[in-house]
Each structure stands twice: as C-alpha cells, then as structure tokens.
C-alpha cells in the first residue's frame, strides 16, 4: 500500500516537473513548483522523516512560493516567447547526464536496506546513546542541535548571509520610505523645502 502511494506521488512529481518545463506563464510556474515541494514533503512524510517534511512544507511550499509571487510583483507577469532555435544539443546533454545518473543509482544501496553504510556508521550511536548523552526524546533534534551543532551554526550563518545579500542588493533605503505614506504625502510638502531629504519634484537631475 505504501509502495503504491510512493509510486503515485513520484509519478505526480514527474508530471509536475514536465509541466514546469512546458508552461510559459510565470505565475503557473511558481504555483507548480509549490505543488512539487508539497508532493516532496508528502513523500518525506511517508518515509517517516517528519522533520524534513515539515521543513519542506514550510520553506519549499510556503515561503519560496510567497517569495516567488513577490518577485513576480516586481518583474510583472510576462509570457516569454518560446525560442525558435533547435535545442537538440541541450537534449543530448540532458540525456547523457540522465543515463549517467541512472547508472550511478545502480550502485546505491537498496531503498530501506538496513545494512546500508549510512546505517552502520554513526547512526547506531545516535539511536542507542543519545537518550543518555543528550536526553532529548527527538533524536533528530539531538543530532541537529548537539552532535552536529557546528553544522547547524553554518546553516544559520547561511540564512543570515542570504538576508544580508538581499538587503545589500535590493534593500536600498530611501528616506521617505521610513515614514508612513500619509505623513510623507500630505504632512510634508516637498515644495516647501522644509526637509532636506525630500527631493523636490524638479530635483530629478540631482538625484540621477
């Protein structure tokens, strides 16, 4: 039964991915990628990776979709015209990469194999000892926060750096933005020149 659900969900993901390639409307692309993430989170849920499923649903399907829509608000919904030139070369590259990846997948341990290397290295220690060593019922939390605390610090720094990058690139502060719109529009009359940060209407040449 679980196998059937897995297969159906994966087919759904494949269909979403194919639709993503062919759809030209950017709004539909964002929605489809949200659906893709939500399906992936369902798959994680079926594999009992609840924490990962939670993150995927919150970040992949939630925030990423909202940010995509916000970006769409900036650049506008444009239907890009399909390129006329032949894309045979790209197809060959994708085909070869796919064949190589499928070949490599043959060497991977079988799905759910208890003797897979990943289950024989440090995982038994986490499962058997973390209750005494860390004392947190959720092993995922004890691995994430304690055993692998240094990695998680790196992840936090990545998030911090991403926010800083967005601020540096797009977060230019124009002084009037710091004030509520009404105050700026009505209470401060730019023509009176009462405030040195409000550009006058004919001041464009100075600013640009």
């Amino acid at each position: 039964m679980i196998l059937l659900t897995d297969v159906i969900l994966m087919l759904f993901m494949v269909a979403t991915a194919i639709a993503l390639v062919f759809v030209r409307n950017l709004f539909a692309v964002i929605m489809l990628s949200g659906i893709f993430s939500l399906t992936a989170s369902l798959l994680y849920l079926l594999m009992d990776a609840v924490d990962v499923a939670f993150t995927e649903a919150a970040v992949g399907a939630g925030i990423a979709t909202v940010l995509g829509l916000a970006t769409l608000g900036i650049i506008g919904v444009q239907d890009e015209k399909p390129q006329q030139r032949s894309s045979l070369g790209s197809f060959v590259v994708v085909l070869i990469t796919g064949i190589v990846l499928i070949q490599a997948a043959n060497d991977m341990p079988a799905f759910g194999d208890p003797d897979a290397p990943i289950h024989r290295h440090v995982a038994p220690r986490y499962i058997e000892q973390s209750g005494e060593e860390v004392g947190v019922p959720n092993i995922v939390t004890s691995v994430l926060a304690s055993y692998r605390g240094f990695d998680t610090m790196g992840e936090v720094m990545v998030v911090f750096t991403a926010a800083c990058g967005v601020l540096v690139l797009m977060g230019r502060t124009r002084k009037p933005d710091d004030y509520p719109e009404e105050d700026y529009r009505e209470d401060i009359d730019p023509r009176e020149g009462s405030s040195d940060f409000v550009p006058k209407d004919d001041d464009e040449s100075v600013r640009s």
Binding site: V50, D51, T55, A58, V59, V136, P137, N138, V140, L144
Partner: peptide, 15 residues
C-alpha cells in the same frame, strides 16, 4: 516542542 516532536528553530522561524 522541537525537543519532543517534529519541529525546531528552522520551522518555527518560518511559521
């Protein structure tokens, strides 16, 4: 509640 069930700082922050 991330210590006891699914969740933690990342998910809570996003929510």
């Amino acid at each position: 509640h991330g210590d006891f069930g699914p969740g933690g700082g990342f998910q809570a922050g996003v929510i």
